[in-house]
Simulated assay, not measured.
Amino acid sequence: MALATCATVAGGMADFLVARAMGRMGGGARLPPRVRDMCARLGRPLRERTFSCVLVLRLLPVGSAMMLSIAAGLAGARAAGFIAATLLGSLPQTVVFVLVGGGTEVNHQWQVALAVVLFVISGLGGVWLLRASRIARADRTT
Rank of each mutant, 00 (worst) to 15 (best):
M1L: 13
A2K: 10
A4V: 10
A4F: 13
C6W: 15
T8D: 13
V9M: 09
G11C: 02
M13P: 02
F16I: 09
L17H: 10
A21N: 03
A21F: 03
G23L: 06
G26W: 00
G26N: 00
G26Y: 00
R30Y: 08
P33R: 12
P33S: 02
V35P: 02
R41F: 00
G43M: 05
P45A: 02
R49T: 05
F51T: 08
C53Q: 01
V54G: 04
V62I: 15
S64H: 07
S69F: 08
G73R: 13
A75T: 02
G76Y: 00
R78D: 12
A79G: 03
A80M: 06
G81K: 10
F82I: 10
I83W: 14
A84S: 14
L88F: 14
G89D: 11
S90R: 08
L91P: 05
L91D: 06
Q93H: 11
T94E: 03
T94F: 03
V96E: 01
F97H: 08
V98Q: 10
L99H: 06
G103D: 06
T104Y: 12
V106Y: 05
N107E: 12
H108M: 05
W110N: 09
Q111V: 02
L114D: 02
A115G: 15
A115E: 05
A115R: 07
V116M: 13
L118R: 10
F119A: 15
G126Y: 13
G126V: 12
L130S: 02
S133Y: 12
S133D: 07
R134Q: 14
I135Q: 03
I135Y: 07
R137V: 11
D139I: 02
T141W: 04
